[in-house]
Simulated scan of single mutants.
Amino acid sequence: MNPTIERLKLIFLAVFAVLVVGVIVWTVGWALPQKKCESQRKWWDPGQRVCAQPVLISDITGRTIQDKQAEAEARAAIGRPAAPAPKQP
């Protein structure tokens, strides 16, 4: 067979193999962790590949959300259950 055809065949096979490995690495390293993170209702940072737990501002500042509907919506948006009722002394 023509040596040029053999060389081109090997080049195309090598490029194909590199692309397949690249797709597998991307899928295992970025796509699957992102999908898992987002299914847990967390934040995915693709640059650092970090799955972070969202935090309500009220948790940081200590100030409570006065509107109970807004608080319930905020907690639902980050995947937390509703706040427990305050204890009566």
Rank of each mutant, 00 (worst) to 15 (best):
V25I: 15
V25D: 15
V25W: 11
V25K: 14
W26E: 12
W26L: 10
W26Q: 14
W26A: 12
T27R: 12
T27I: 10
V28I: 14
V28F: 12
V28D: 12
V28T: 09
G29A: 08
G29V: 05
G29K: 04
G29R: 04
G29F: 03
G29Q: 06
W30E: 08
A31F: 09
A31C: 07
P33C: 05
P33E: 09
P33W: 06
P33R: 07
Q34N: 07
Q34C: 04
K35A: 11
K35M: 10
K35S: 13
K36T: 11
K36F: 08
C37G: 01
C37R: 00
C37M: 03
E38W: 00
E38T: 03
E38S: 02
E38H: 01
S39L: 07
S39F: 04
Q40P: 00
Q40L: 05
R41E: 06
R41Q: 14
R41T: 12
K42L: 02
K42M: 06
W43T: 14
W43F: 13
D45Y: 09
D45A: 07
D45K: 06
P46V: 02
G47E: 11
G47C: 05
Q48G: 12
Q48D: 13
R49T: 01
V50N: 09
V50C: 04
C51H: 04
C51N: 07
A52P: 04
A52L: 13
A52M: 11
A52S: 14
Q53T: 15
Q53D: 14
Q53R: 15
P54E: 00
P54V: 00
P54T: 00
P54C: 02
P54W: 00
P54Q: 01
V55M: 12
V55Y: 04
V55C: 06
V55N: 08
L56I: 02
L56Q: 04
L56V: 00
I57P: 03
